[in-house]
Design a protein around this nucleic acid. Structure first.
Lengths: 354, 354
DNA sequence: CTGAAAGCGCTTACAG
DNA sequence: CTGAAAGCGCTTACAG
């Protein structure tokens, strides 16, 4: 490997001069600088080795991304894709790399202290939708690196970017109830990251560790409480156990099999769109036979006429990356709450006159 | 910052012992190891600092991903998402991180030697669909790190994972012609990464620097040549200038405005699906009024009944990541060609009897 | 504007 | 099974 030292010798200058040639053009005369750069190219030196620089400066030049359990899911989910877009936009501007950290599911590995989480050379972490009590957060915190939560628990004291999930869900469910629906089903992607799927018991709902889903559920339930004559306890909640299209469809099937509902409140647009598909496959017209509402307003929601809650997904990514960069630079930890908006389209109507 | 040295002092052992406690459990007695680990936790040492380890071992523990110009696009494109899934699957297994390298569009920056491309701490690069002559490749190569091309030029001598684009395109176009189409239009995402959109001149097609698109064009043209009575020169080729849904739709509009075609051969499924949308918006039935074929077989293709070419997108990612890992480990550079398959659905039929 | 020197945190070959 | 020592490639405070 050609090092700075080699270039310095070949160019007849000190090692410091070579470093300056690459990093501090102002500290060298132009001629000197160009001479050094020319020699460097000649002997095949591509520039300072990141490992050396990183050790010396204490900066990695990269942001770590902790995404739920598996990266696989991340690339499957439209909402996540938009978030990543916002994050990478900022990363690009700031010229920092984005490091996706594979997250071994076996928490034993994480706890042991092995794993990329601890070895990844990053300056800080963005933790996306990590379930509560996930050992990853703790380990990362123990490295002493800044962490910004995205869609995480609102009460940890950690800097965080999110939306008012509970209120938005409340408002949305209120709309559904205002249309007169009495037999309502709810779909969530997952409550506890154990892959379990199917009708969720009350206990399961209480032990939910995915804070975003649980906040939304609280919002839905609150809307029922507002009405004296609607009973949240009659609502069937089905958990998909994942975020992909396949499990979403299956969850919709389970719900439609389990209860004769006139409206489905889906915790995400992906679930809502899968529900519309499944309903239509069963010959149910949306919204005439079945109303469906979602959450997120992913791009595909519009074409499907889905009534939903819009959250600024790309902007959430941007804000999160900026906040992390700020904190790395010594800025204060703070919480950013982004605005949401009820989007009325055509998938919500009054229940069919039976 | 708490270092290994601090732990060693606190535990009353040598620095080497601390290193062993974390990296080579077999070189220490169990009691000793546990004592060290306990002390480490007590004084807040989370494990070896990646920067130090990286400098010492010469390994970064991360794979770099070079994706066209902007990461933004990557998260927009279903085919890329599947590729990333395959890559991350392997990364997860091998416990290496995936570093997305923001790619400044201004090639000046790259040429200057600044930029994350040179600073990113990675052990090798996966270069995805990089246009020919892109300065990034050269710079990265100059770092002396292994590079695996994914969907790149087939004749650079660099290790590469791809598919037989030309033959597959040839076969697909042959199917279109066999159905009797004479007025055919072609859609490509981009030929030259300058964002230009619209009808592509012959010169523009020749100067194409996106090798995948140009290979597919060659295949299409070859199919025309096979037929004595079809003239490739009458084919209108429209370039979208990007990969997202919006520009894809616009390209379809441009094509349908420019020529009265009975069939559209789209260079990607995203373009094909956009074409179907636009056609239906104009009151054209697919395939009765207009046949459309795509390329890739992304998940959405099936529901749309799109006739296309299936390529194993996830597997392409897996193979590429594995190959890069192999080469980093000293394995030989080689080329992997993945199989493709013509997928007949309903979007291709005979042209309407006029 | 330039150079000599220290040291960032770690791993490993070596000697015991 | 254990420890002392070297050195990975770099940047920067300091002295000139």
């Amino acid at each position: 490997m050609v090092t700075m030292h080699d270039v310095a010798r070949a160019a007849g200058v000190s090692q410091a001069a070579v470093s300056y040639a690459f990093n501090r053009p102002d500290r060298l005369s132009n001629a000197r600088r160009e001479h050094i750069l020319k020699i460097a190219t000649e002997i095949g030196y591509a520039g300072p080795d990141p490992a050396g620089r990183s050790l010396r400066t204490g900066q990695a030049g990269a942001l770590g991304l902790m995404i739920t359990d598996s990266l696989r899911d991340a690339f499957d989910d439209p909402a996540t894709a938009l978030l990543l877009r916002g994050i990478s936009e900022v990363g690009e501007l700031a010229e920092v790399a984005l490091t996706l950290l594979p997250f071994p599911l076996e928490s034993q590995k994480i706890a042991q202290g092995s794993g990329v989480l601890l070895r990844g050379a990053v300056d800080g972490f963005l933790a996306y939708a990590l379930p509560e009590g996930h050992p990853g957060i703790e380990r990362v915190l123990s490295r002493g690196l800044p962490v910004v939560l995205v869609d995480g628990a609102p009460d940890t004291g950690l800097p965080r970017v999110g939306i008012p999930d509970r209120q938005a869900a409340h408002e949305l469910a209120a709309q559904v109830l205002a249309h007169g629906h009495r037999r309502v089903g709810v779909l969530v992607d997952r409550l506890v990251p154990d892959g379990r799927a199917g009708v969720a018991s009350a206990a399961r709902i209480i032990e939910a560790r995915d804070r975003v889903m649980s906040e939304r559920l609280i919002g839905y339930a609150a809307a029922f409480d507002d009405h004296g004559d609607r009973d949240w306890s009659t609502v069937t909640v089905v958990e998909a156990g994942g975020v992909d299209h396949e499990v979403s469809r299956r969850a919709a099937e389970t719900l439609l099999d389990a209860a004769a509902v006139t409206a489905v409140i889906a915790g995400t647009d992906v679930l809502a769109l899968a529900t519309i598909e499944v309903a239509q496959g069963r010959g149910l017209a949306v919204p005439d036979d079945l109303s469906v509402v979602g959450f997120d307003d992913i791009p595909a929601a519009e074409a499907a006429g889905l009534t939903t809650v819009r959250q600024p997904l790309v902007d959430k990514g941007r804000q999160a990356a900026r906040l992390l960069l700020e904190i790395i630079d010594g800025g204060p930890a703070r919480e950013i709450l982004l605005p949401v908006e009820y989007v009325r389209r055509t998938s919500l109507a009054s229940p069919p006159a039976r």
